[in-house]
Design a protein around this nucleic acid. Structure first.
Length: 635
DNA sequence: GTTAGGG
DNA sequence: CCCTAAC
């Protein structure tokens, strides 16, 4: 209880170990190298094929969409069919079974990295119930088997597997690209499977042993902490963030997110207009610059994939290495559209580190960059003839995407996902999660999901999967919708999209990105700001009405027991601001508007307890404030 | 460890 | 949110 505070802050949140350190280092090094030589990286040039397993891409649907989707299933375009995570797993198992597991060091499941819906779907654990422990382990195992070996990560294009899913009419070759794949794969391992390396001295040492092992609880003993930036908060910071684009912003380009760090210091900016903060060291700088034009599509240059600022976009274009072909007999009743994505662009990472930086820090820097990008999840967007195809319910045919159409104009984009329940949404008002008119959203990792839903403060060191259970019972977890989608979709309840649970501790619905708490090292950095959601405010008000204003610890226990990120001091502070907010003109208020009703209750409770001196008269002497209809006063 | 308040 | 003082 009281440890809430200390916990998050003091205890070093154990980072999930980055199994990919070595790999990352290699990659980072490569990037640097290439950067220096001013030569486009192989990645950028597309020389290195990035794995993309779009098998079932479009059919990939969140489980919750199955029901609504199934109807629109079109034999010819299974693209609309629902996708069930488990199925994917199975498929993968089948697919990769047999692959050697010996060389674990740099194994990557490329298919699960890039455009591969399946792998990503592993993250669908936003629906905790979906997976049983066994299944989780299966996934873990999967990651073990589901891999290819990458020697030294760069440039080596591994085999090409062809996923020929009988259930899918879309067959896409599965290419593998070591570098990016490694990033992701490793990342998944770390985050989703709770796998990590034990490189505790990563800061200065280059461990050669990285292991991948099935997830299992780990004792939190002095493991080096690694900041998880995969928080949606970052995405949130730049809502308009479009295709992922990364590039050096040393020039001072606006950056959606920038951070520099030292071993124990870092600076973050959460707003597009870079918010200056004291920074301890300029040695490291990883920046992401997002093109705010949400809606535009990044078209890859003819040849390379570099000219486009490294947008995380994969495009189907014959002229740029990606081809789309159609097949199916004209007479056939259900012609199939076959697409082949030959390469997939992974955002370029520009990293700047001093020569004195340790390999370990470099690795982490790279890892964090990648993590940040994918942390919030990615969704797939379909662009056809220059226009974004938003209606997920339409068949390919209806969308004009047929074997006869010019598939050169068909493209896919990977975009940041902003999945999260609106903070102001109470359980009952949860946004509708219709399955249509929304770009397909790639589910996020359990970790992110939880965090984004403010559900867990699971520290990185805490078993992610293990946490699922905790999360499972009393929260709503938004599955795969992006806020804007939810808005656009209108309120069409789709309970299946949620994991309904007793609305206890509403505060946990706070959807403020609850990322893996950014580690705050000894030099303790300010906690990330996490505005209270209306639900939280409501819970707070209710608790205060009952307990008074002098028992914050009790308030905490009563209403925020499970909101680890809210300390009683936080609650006290919030109350303080609430009282203030309630006493000022609405026009002067900032942030998410708090319902008048609540503010009135705040005032009522405030005055009530001011008179009843709850604080000084003892905890149980004063009677709780009877909650009546909010006072009429406006503020 | 909690509370209360200023910053 | 952080920090401190006070209990």
């Amino acid at each position: 209880m009281s440890s809430q505070r200390r916990g998050p802050r003091k205890k070093l949140v154990e980072d999930s170990k980055l199994c990919a350190f070595e790999l990352l280092a290699a990659v980072a090094g490569k990037l640097l190298e290439e950067s220096e030589s001013s030569a486009s990286s192989n990645i950028a040039e597309g020389k290195v094929k990035v794995g993309s397993c779009l098998d079932g891409d479009e059919k990939m649907q969140p489980k919750d969409d199955i029901a609504t989707k199934s109807e629109s299933l079109d034999r010819g375009s299974s693209a609309e069919s629902a996708f069930v995570p488990e199925i994917c797993v199975q498929e993968h198992k089948l697919l990769f079974k047999g692959l050697p597991q010996a060389e674990n060091d740099y194994v990557v499941d490329y298919s699960s990295v890039h455009a591969s819906p399946d792998p990503f779907s592993h993250k669908v654990e936003s629906e905790p119930k979906v997976q049983s422990e066994d299944e989780k382990y299966q996934i873990g195992d999967l990651s073990m088997a589901n891999r290819s070996t990458v020697k030294d990560s760069i440039g080596e294009c591994v085999n090409t597997d062809v996923l020929n899913n009988s259930e899918s009419s879309v067959q896409l070759p599965l290419y593998r690209e070591p570098v990016a794949g490694a990033f992701f794969r490793k990342h998944w391992n770390d985050v989703k499977l709770g796998i990590r390396d034990d490189d505790e001295n990563s800061f200065g040492c280059n461990k050669s042993s990285t292991r991948i092992r099935p997830f299992r609880p780990q004792p939190r003993i002095g493991h080096r902490r690694i900041r998880k930036l995969m928080t949606s908060k970052y995405w949130k910071a730049a809502p308009k963030l479009k295709d992922c684009e990364l590039y050096n912003t040393s020039e001072g380009m606006k950056s959606f997110y920038r951070y520099r760090k030292n071993i124990y210091a870092r600076e973050r900016s959460q707003r597009v207009p870079l918010k200056k903060r004291k920074l301890a060291d300029h040695s490291f700088a990883v920046s992401y610059d997002q093109d705010a034009s949400s809606g535009s599509i990044s078209h890859l240059p003819e040849k390379g994939l570099t000219g486009d600022k490294g947008s995380l976009a994969m495009v189907l274009h014959r002229d740029n290495g990606v081809s789309a072909t159609v097949s199916g007999h004209p007479k056939q009743k259900d012609p199939h559209v076959k697409l082949s994505i030959k390469s997939f662009k992974v955002p370029e990472l520009y990293i700047e580190v001093p020569e004195t930086a340790t390999v370990g820090s470099l690795k982490r820097t790279v890892m964090e960059a990648v993590t940040t990008i994918l942390g919030a999840g990615i969704r797939v967007g379909v662009v056809f003839q220059g226009k974004k195809v938003r209606d997920d319910c339409r068949t390919l045919q209806q969308a004009g995407i047929s074997q006869w159409s010019n598939l050169d104009n068909l493209g896919f984009t990977l975009e940041p996902n902003f999945t999260r329940v609106s903070p102001s949404m109470t359980p009952k008002k949860l946004p509708a999660l219709s399955s249509c008119d929304a770009d397909w959203t790639l589910p996020r990792s359990p970790a992110t999901s939880m965090m984004d839903s403010g559900i867990s403060n699971t520290s990185v060191d805490t078993p992610v999967l293990a946490k699922l259970d905790d999360v499972g019972h009393n929260k709503y977890i938004c599955s795969t919708k992006t806020p804007d989608d939810a808005l656009l979709d209108g309120a069409v309840p789709d309970l299946k999209a949620l994991v309904p649970v007793p609305p206890v501790n509403v505060e946990e619905l706070a959807v403020v990105p609850a990322n893996l708490k950014p580690k705050r090292s000894e030099l303790s950095q300010r906690r990330t700001r996490r505005p209270f959601s209306v639900a939280e405010v409501e819970a707070l008000v209710e608790a205060v009405e009952k307990l008074g204003t002098g028992r914050w610890r009790d308030v905490k226990m009563l209403a925020f027991e499970n909101a680890d990120h809210r300390t009683y001091v936080d609650l006290k502070d919030k109350w303080k601001t609430l009282v203030h907010t309630a006493s000022i003109a609405p026009q002067q208020r900032r942030g998410e508007p708090v319902p008048h009703e609540l503010l009135n209750r705040v005032l009522s409770a405030h005055s009530y307890w001011s008179q009843h001196q709850s604080k000084q008269q003892g905890k149980h002497t004063a009677e709780p404030l009877k909650v009546e209809d909010s006072t009429a006063s406006d503020c």
